[in-house]
């Protein structure tokens, strides 16, 4: 479904953020991308969703729609708009023009996610990280994407909120067959959620394989170091 070939990205001329990155993703799978800060994983996520353009290489995506969920949930909403208004905007960008229909659809989306109706009147700063992230996910889902790109979506959440989000992601995969491209620095989260994982360091992919392979028989020294530091081994 998604194929990335020989991506290169430079920042400010000399910083080689992505070095010859290539990988592919099958429909319906959950691919994890793990790396530390500076590894280029966020850049890769942004390039895959076409928010920034690569300097060379190409991306082929033949799925129906791709959306992205960001790391800082409260900051991914316009602070001056209510959650309902933000969601309305997402829907109207997707083509819905009738005001009455917008209101109905927003209410329906909130309800289907198990969120209280009065949350539509709240502002981002009034909600917790976990609550905002849930709304961010339904906002992304409102476009009915086949691929959900997640850039560290649980990294800024407390453990309990993180667990709830992971349950939500699992539910989405099970019930809607959504593919996930999940970027995280947390190996445990990736092990819990994904089928395959890519390890990145300094703009390069060091290792890629199934969860079982990479976690039990890591090949690359950096992967081994990561596993050791996370005390999984």
């Amino acid at each position: 479904m998604l194929e990335v070939r020989s991506l290169h990205k430079f920042f400010k001329g000399s910083v080689h953020a992505l070095k010859d990155v290539s990988f592919s993703m099958a429909r319906g799978e959950a691919l994890g991308l793990v790396g530390e800060s500076g590894s280029g994983k966020t850049t890769l996520a942004k390039i895959v969703t076409r928010l920034i353009a690569p300097d060379s290489g190409d991306i082929r995506f033949d799925g129906k729609g791709m959306q992205i969920v960001f790391q800082n949930p409260n900051a991914s909403f316009d602070p001056r708009m209510t959650m309902g208004a933000s969601l309305s905007e997402a829907l109207s960008l997707a083509g819905e023009k009738k005001k009455t229909r917008l209101k109905e659809r927003v209410a329906a989306l909130f309800e289907s996610a198990g969120l209280p109706a009065e949350m539509t009147r709240r502002f981002p700063h009034e909600l917790s990280g976990g609550e905002c992230q849930r709304v961010a996910v339904i906002r992304a889902l409102s476009r009915d994407p086949e691929l959900l790109v997640c850039d560290e979506p649980v990294s800024s959440l407390d453990l309990l909120a993180q667990a709830k989000m992971l349950n939500l992601f699992l539910k989405l995969r099970k019930e809607r067959g959504i593919s996930l491209f999940f970027v995280s620095h947390d190996l445990r989260v990736i092990r819990h959620l994904c089928d395959r994982v890519m390890v990145m360091k300094d703009g390069e992919i060091c290792e890629i394989g199934s969860i079982a392979q990479v976690f039990e028989k890591p090949q690359h020294p950096y992967t081994k170091e990561l596993l050791l530091s996370s005390s999984i081994s």
Binding site: Q67, I68, S76, F77, D78, A94, A136, R143
Partner: peptide
């Protein structure tokens, strides 16, 4: 939030 709007 600007990036999010662009993505949408």
């Amino acid at each position: 939030f600007v990036l999010a709007a662009k993505a949408l």
